[in-house]
Structure formats: structure tokens, C-alpha cells
Amino acid sequence: MNSQSSIRNPQSTLEKMNIQMIISGVGGQGVLLVTRIISDFALREGYPLIGSEDHGMSQRGGSVITYLKIGDFNSPLVKRGSADILLSLERSEALKTLHYLRPSSNGQNGGLGFINASDPNYMNEPIRNYLREKGIEIHIFPADRIAVEMGSVQSTNIALIGFASAHPRFPFPHDKLRQSIDRVTPPKFREVSLKIFDKGFLEGGKSMKP
């Protein structure tokens, strides 16, 4: 169970939020922790959340995909072509879940994807062109390398959210996510998680100048 509990924050000054999101990866990569961080954020800020998780058979090393919807939604699944955000912890799983991202009609402000991969050009030319045409913006970042360098290979997920939170169109504010990480991660990993999150943010700021 998520041990998160809260009385709604009445001071929340953020605008109304309607965000659909996909988190993909492989069993054991910590997809569920990302979900928990975002859930904590939504709960604190008083945004209703609904989503879906994989359990059982799919946890045994298979592909894992989590759907999250923040705002006025009733159903837990995100439809293909509807996600505002994709966070993917694994390069192949990222490709397999790319089609969830929302294409735009004018080639601008489509869905935003953040992918953990070492080679920034690992997607082939036709796919990259297609995404560009549809206004889908993809950022590739070696989150696992950063996490390993900073001494916690399990925190690849945290490095990737840190990176994403530097993007001006990423809907969740960096400082609020930081507070959620502080609350949600087990005490043993808390300090290193926050360091890795900040490092990801720093790298994101460098590579995604507005």
C-alpha cells in the first residue's frame, strides 16, 4: 500500500491540471516508485488521480507499464495517442510505448518523452522524423549511468524524473517533486536519491535550454 496520506493542501495555487502519463520499463526497474512519487505529489496538491499498475505474472521480468491520469478522469487506462508525458526506463520499452504520446495537429506542443538510454541517437531516422512532424518531443538521457556514478544503480528512475523536471513543459514543479521523493523513498536511500534527483535536474537544465 502507498503509505501516503494527507489532508488536502488548501493553499494549493496551481492551475487546474489534466495530465495523462505513461511510465514504462522492465520488472524490477522501479517503475512503481516513480508512480508513488507522482501519486504523492498529486495527493499533496489536491489533484485527483487515477492510474493502473501491473502485478502478478508481469512482475517477473516482463515489460511493465503504468498509466497515470491526474485531473478529472474516471478510467485508469491512457489511450494510445493521448499521453502528455512518457517516462521510460528502458530503451526498447520506450519504443514500444512511444505511440501513447499525443501527436499534435500543428507540429508543436505534442507529447513529451524522457527516455533512459546511453545513445542519444538510438532511434532510427524515420521514427525521429515522424515524431518531429507530430510535435512529439523526445529527450534521451543516460539516467542509469548518472545513478551508477553516484553510487545507487537502483535510482535510475529518480535520475530520470530529475532530468525531466528541468523541462519547461514538464507539468510537475521540481521542488514539489523533490518533497515527494523525500517523503516516499525509504530512509536508507533518501539522501542519495535527492542527490541523484538534483544531478538529473542539473543535467536536464544543461541539455534542454528553453
Binding site: 515489460s63 519504443l95 532510427n124 521514427i127
Partner: peptide
Amino acid sequence: VRSTAPLEKMVADLGLSVRRPTLC
């Protein structure tokens, strides 16, 4: 309703392996 089929086809053509569940 916007179709996502072209992108799905491009990814399918890569022939990425399906990750089957396995004993730990």
C-alpha cells in the same frame, strides 16, 4: 480520432523482442 498506426508499424518493423516473464 488521430491514428497512431504509422508509428506503431515503424516500431513493429524493428522486430524488438517480446520480454516474456521468467523465473527470477
